Simulated assay, not measured.
Amino acid sequence: MAATMDNNTAVAGMGGPLLGNAEFEFLRTFVYEHCGISLGEHKRQLVQGRLLRRLRALQLRDFAAYCDVLRRDPHGELGELASAISTNVTAFFRESHHFDLLTNELLPRWISEKKSGGRLRLWSAGCATGEEPYTLAMVLAEALEKHGGNVDAKILATDLSPQALETARKGIYPIERLEGVSAERRRRWFLRGEGEYEQFACVHPRLRELVSILPLNLLHEWPMQGPFDAIFCRNVVIYFDKPTKQRLFQRYAGLLPEGGYLFLGHSESMYGLNDSFDLIGRTVYRKGSA
């Protein structure tokens, strides 16, 4: 049976209503304004498929009703919408060269400079389900033990997705998700579950002490003042268009001191977007002098 994309009638095999043109255009505009994510026409099928779950969860008849929910309470549903249309791909020690740089060079230097009671701050911007900030916590805890000193060290982890933040706060992961963690670090920084949790592991309380997990929309106001020694924003800006990236990088520059570091994902670049940073390694940028 043929059907156009201009209605919300069910189609055999689709298992739900269609995403009509008017609703898709509304969602494209809404997502761009609130999340900075640019949805091309080629994303229509993806958006339809993923948002069908939200329609079922909210017991809505069609996408027009879902758009009405966004109009009535844009911020109440924003996190769920962002979770649905973006892909949270993450892993412990993903892009391990970044953590090698921290372990071998940056953390020893920072701890040495701040030994007399200084403040060390790292930010995982777009922390997803928590693997990145807990990886940062592992290398930070090990560096503090090795190099000592009275350093006030903390990691801020933020994301827009409520589901991702819930997983990060629990800090409980299937054993197979620890594939990138060495056997020694597994023994040191994870507690093996028992009974029904036998196939899961929980992060060590020491790592939880170092990490603060909070909801944050990168496009909205930021409550923190900084400065941060390093900001990790990896595999986040791939969803943004050029003007949004430029604004975001400028805001990051405002929270980093001269010599502060910004880490991007393997497929991301700051080329032609900001002149406050110098590329010093594989997707590693250092803020220069003003």
Rank of each mutant, 00 (worst) to 15 (best):
L218Y: 00
A164P: 05
S212T: 13
P174M: 07
P223K: 14
R185S: 10
F190T: 04
I172H: 12
K146H: 10
T167Y: 00
V236P: 13
R186W: 01
E221I: 00
A183T: 01
Y197V: 00
L207S: 06
F240I: 01
S112D: 14
D241I: 05
P215Y: 07
E184Q: 08
T158M: 08
S182A: 10
C127N: 09
L219M: 15
V181N: 03
D241G: 07
V181P: 01
K115E: 08
M138A: 12
K146R: 15
F240Y: 04
V203K: 09
V211K: 11
L144Q: 01
C202K: 15
Y239V: 02
L156C: 04
Q225F: 03
G195C: 05
Y173Q: 09
R187W: 02
G118A: 05
E196A: 13
R119M: 11
C127Q: 07
I111C: 01
V237S: 10
V237P: 08
E142R: 10
V237L: 11
L218F: 12
G130C: 02
D241Y: 12
G117K: 00
Q225G: 01
C233Q: 05
A137D: 02
R234C: 06
Q225T: 13
T135M: 09
M224F: 15
W222L: 14
P215E: 06
E131R: 01
E196L: 13
G180I: 01
H204F: 01
H204A: 10
R187L: 14
K146D: 04
R185A: 13
T135V: 07
K170C: 12
M138E: 05
L210I: 02
P133Y: 04
G117V: 12
V181F: 07
K114R: 15
R206S: 14
L165M: 00
E198K: 15
F190V: 06
Q225M: 05
G149D: 01
R177V: 05
W222M: 13
Y239N: 04
H204V: 00
Y173P: 10
A230G: 12
K146M: 11
L136S: 06
K154T: 09
E209F: 00
R208M: 11
Q199S: 14
D229R: 05
E194C: 06
R192L: 09
I155V: 12
A164R: 07
G149N: 03
W222C: 12
S212C: 09
A168K: 03
L144F: 01
V236S: 10
